[in-house]
Amino acid sequence: MTGLWRTLRLVLLALLGGGYLVMDYLASSSTQPPAYAVLIGAAPLTAGAIAACWNSTFRLPATLLCLGGLLAMVLNLDRLLAHAAWLYFFQHAGIMSGLGIMFGSTLGSHEGALCSRIARVAIAEPLDARYLHYTWKVTLAWTVYFAASALLSLLLFAFAPLASWALFASLLTPLSLGLMFGGEYLIRLRALPGQPHFSIAQTIRSYRQYTQCRDTTE
């Protein structure tokens, strides 16, 4: 019964994810998208912004400011729909740029690289210099990937048809993210034989644990 429930949950998550990507594409590829597509497409970023404000040091003023911004957007929904592509562009390019900065800012040492920190959370035993050198290179690869994605998003939005940019931002970006995760895992198995390894799901859980531990120590 547990296996059946797990399968059903994965199918449901896949359907929800696919539906979100379709809504995201519809909203970002049209100059006059339907309101429901824009609202659904903007939901993850909105939820993330509210969560960030709630967890910030200045919780009350930050949350009130965020809610005020949301109210202003609702009251000017017609203008928002007329410029929905810009909203999605800033969302996509901003996320890619922010992640690139987050990864790139940790490249000062092999031990301090973000992927090295995540690996130390995922693997209980100490990591040797070879492993840390590899995780530093993985951090560099993710930095280059996010920087290239942000630049390509800018170039496509500025010079290509809107549908081409929407295809890249809404569909090709999630696909390339999956390929990056899967490709890195396969390369790691080959580059570090006999070393402890962890799955993609463990990587995500370890990153969450790392951010939680970092937040509690700050």
Rank of each mutant, 00 (worst) to 15 (best):
M180I: 03
S176H: 13
R188V: 00
L175K: 07
M180G: 03
L179N: 05
H197G: 05
E184H: 09
T173W: 15
F198Y: 13
I204Q: 11
R188S: 01
I187R: 08
E184K: 02
S170H: 09
L172N: 11
L171Q: 05
Y185G: 03
E184D: 12
Y185S: 09
L186H: 13
Q195F: 12
G178E: 07
L179R: 06
L171C: 06
S170G: 03
S170L: 02
P174V: 00
Q195K: 12
G183H: 02
P196W: 02
A201Q: 14
L177R: 09
T173M: 15
S176V: 12
L192Y: 01
L192A: 01
F198Q: 10
P174N: 03
L192T: 00
P196E: 03
A169I: 00
P193W: 06
I200G: 06
L175Q: 09
L179K: 05
P174F: 02
S199T: 10
F198T: 05
L189C: 09
L186M: 12
L172G: 08
S176A: 13
H197F: 05
L175S: 07
L179E: 05
I200N: 09
G194T: 02
L179C: 06
A191K: 04
L171M: 06
Q195P: 11
A191Y: 04
R188A: 00
I187M: 14
M180F: 11
R190I: 07
Q195D: 13
H197V: 01
E184V: 01
L172S: 10
Q195S: 14
L171I: 06
G182E: 12
P196A: 00
Q195G: 11
S199K: 07
P174K: 03
L171R: 05
P174A: 00
L192I: 00
F181D: 04
L189P: 08
E184W: 06
L177T: 10
T173R: 12
A169G: 01
I200E: 09
E184C: 02
S199A: 05
G178I: 03
A201D: 15
L189I: 06
A201I: 13
A201P: 11
A191E: 05
M180E: 10
Q195E: 14
T203E: 15
R188D: 03
S199C: 05
P174R: 02
T173K: 13
I200V: 10
F198L: 10
P196V: 01
L186C: 08
T173Y: 15
R188G: 02
A201N: 14
A201K: 13
E184R: 03
L192C: 01
G183F: 00
E184L: 01
Q195V: 12
S199L: 03
L175M: 10
L171K: 03
L189T: 05
T203I: 14
I204D: 13
F181I: 02
P196L: 00
S176R: 10
G178Q: 08
H197Q: 07
L172H: 13
G178P: 09
L179W: 06
A191S: 06
G194P: 08
A191M: 04
S199I: 02
Q195H: 14
S199Y: 14
I204A: 14
G178Y: 09
